[in-house]
Design a protein around this nucleic acid. Structure first.
Lengths: 156, 156
DNA sequence: CCTTGACCTCAAGTGAACTTCAACTTACAG
DNA sequence: CTGTAAGTTGAAGTTCACTTGAGGTCAAGG
């Protein structure tokens, strides 16, 4: 007999906005877990929704799934995490966000001065400073946020 | 034009900080071009350095190479681009940057209020608002679910 | 002439975060 | 009991921006 009402993967997907395939993927990566029915189907505890919320939010902030897994590993083992547990983890994002905003603002200022001269000179322009590159956005294009940048890139 | 000193791919790589393999890749994607020697080696015009600077900077701002190619396509055909040409293109980045910064700031504010409660609640938390999410990641995760997670009141 | 280092092409690999596919199996309403 | 929606697996595919590797050529100095 099932006292607690567990959630199927479809229910979790609907309520979290995360596709079933992504949930399976998260499980594979050790981010979430599930019970199984006799017929091998996943059944999620309700607290998993909060865990997924954490993962999605951290992901939006630009953390990799590995980093998120690390953060989740600091949660208490035996018991269901409390609000304070989640608070503790979330607080760490604050600094990260501040940093990223600062990097973008610096980039914007540099851009302003470069628009002034139109140079994009490799020798002089701050925009071309390789040191900044590491700090900027990590590898590859991370569009953290949505813009359909197509209206800037031109075309269509 | 015969007097112009052309640059080898290695020289361009050193001066631009972009790896030779990346330069070949950019060429393949139509972002830059080069003359060839009798022995089929690339020789770059000096103005190519500025073009590469543009590509790298736009890339740092989060534009895809396709979008950058579109932008470059608006440069005048016949002549070497002037400082004003580059200025015109760069100006369009300004708005993009502003937008991105604004989004991150909003996210930070939301985070602040969420840290207050530690909830990360799917029902209440702005951070979990699916509308934001659609805008969040551009290409990539596609959810086929059209449901809003606002069903079932009581919750956890 | 010979060696060495820079260069060439094309194909395949990388990594992040998923999605899609094929080929089943399970859960449950009627 | 049966039809079917929803679930299962593992492998492979996707996108982006490159890098790496194999196998070969070119340019320049001694």
């Amino acid at each position: 007999m099932i006292l607690e009402r567990y959630l199927t993967i479809g229910e979790v997907a609907r309520r979290s906005g995360v596709a079933p395939s992504a949930l399976r993927f998260y499980e594979q990566r050790g981010l979430i877990e599930a019970q199984r029915t006799g017929g091998n189907q996943r059944r999620y505890e309700r607290t998993t929704l909060r865990r997924i919320a954490f993962v999605r939010t951290a992901s939006r902030l630009g953390l990799t799934l590995d980093q998120i897994a690390d953060a989740l590993a600091t949660l208490p083992d035996g018991r269901t995490p409390t609000a304070e547990d989640w608070r503790r983890l979330s607080r760490r994002w604050r600094g990260l966000l501040d940093e990223r905003i600062a990097v973008l603002e610096r980039l914007r200022d540099d851009l302003d001065s470069c628009i002034g001269c139109g140079c994009l000179s490799l020798e002089r322009c701050t925009l071309q400073n390789p040191e900044d590159r590491a700090a900027a956005l990590g590898p590859g294009p991370r569009y953290l946020e949505g813009d359909s940048p197509s209206d800037v890139g031109g075309g269509t």
